[in-house]
Design a binder for these strands. Structure first.
Length: 283
DNA sequence: CGTTGAACCTGTTTGC
DNA sequence: TGCAAACAGGTTCAAC
């Protein structure tokens, strides 16, 4: 569920509560298969100070400062979290009722808790040294909000894959998911099955502008809530009412009135207007 | 290289 | 009504 705008919304919400707080205790449910090393998490996270909260693609990163048990030296650690399809990260009062499928409780030093709830457990969580964290975050591609025009064009044209597959590939662009890919392609009038290498310069330019505009507006509206997603304070997003293609099969295209169609591209449901987004001749 | 399908897991919606 | 199939915002891996 959570793509760049949703993760960004969660990060901004967490920033209102977490920096400067200390994690005093960690509790886990019995289902911890989404944690790389649950023992390490329990050993290294309690007692640490949260310095900052940031986003890298769809990953949330909490910068922690851990006091060495015996000495005075402070160590930097990263708490790396991915929300998968149904992950929620919220800050609540410690006596708030516990939602089903809540698997991690970080007790804070202000009588509140940071909770991770994830029914499907497609999320991921680990504690890592900055060097180990780099192994996960390093391979991620360009940030679609910051990439230059030249880099954007190079990333789109230097590979022979469908544009939909390219945009979803986290090593090409970090943060794009199924919703914002379809919305961007609809806005730029590009069929999802077109090859990136075959896009015309003008189309590439248009696509980059469409992606930026859509991601920025989605962030402004707090992301898209389809069924599970909520921000750090439990509030849903509002961008779903602005969707023009995603999950609109059979409904009229907002531009031309043609019925939106759905087809599988890159293994994912892809929604597009067959008139505005002309299909490629081959493939 | 790139594509496809399956797997991971739970919940909800759709179809007969 | 009831049950089974299809589908879901993501990622990863094997097979072709």
């Amino acid at each position: 569920m959570p793509e760049l705008p949703e993760v960004e919304t969660v990060v901004r919400g967490l920033r209102l509560h977490l920096p400067g707080r200390r994690i005093v205790e960690l509790r886990l449910s019995k289902k911890t298969d989404f944690i790389d090393d649950a023992v390490a998490l329990g050993d290294r996270v309690p007692g640490s100070l949260i310095r900052a909260v940031r986003r890298h693609g769809k990953f949330l990163v909490l910068d922690l400062e851990t006091d060495a048990a015996d000495g005075t030296e402070a160590r930097a650690e990263l708490l790396v979290i991915h929300l998968g399809m149904t992950g929620q990260l919220t800050v609540v009062a410690a006596d708030t009722e516990v939602k089903l499928h809540t698997h991690v409780f970080f007790t804070l030093d202000d009588r509140r808790e940071l909770r991770f709830c994830d029914p499907r457990r497609f999320g991921r969580m680990l504690v890592a040294t900055p060097a180990d964290g780099e192994k996960i975050l390093g391979p991620l591609g360009a940030d679609p909000l910051e990439v230059s025009e030249a880099d954007f064009r190079r990333l789109i044209t230097s590979r022979r894959a469908r544009i939909k597959a390219l945009l979803l590939d986290q090593t090409v662009f970090r943060g794009m998911g199924n919703i914002y890919t379809d919305e961007s392609l609809w806005r730029a009038k590009i069929h999802p099955a077109r090859l990136g290498a075959n896009l015309k310069p003008q189309e590439i330019k248009k696509l980059q502008r469409a992606m930026r505009a859509i991601l920025e507006e989605a962030i402004r509206l707090g992301g898209s809530s389809i069924s599970d997603y909520v921000g750090a304070d439990g509030e849903p997003g509002e961008f779903q009412i602005r969707h023009r293609a995603y999950d609109r099969e059979g409904k009229k295209c907002f531009r031309c009135g043609t019925k939106i169609r759905r087809m599988i591209v890159a293994g994912r449901s892809s929604y597009f207007c067959p008139k505005c987004q002309r299909a490629p001749r081959v493939s």
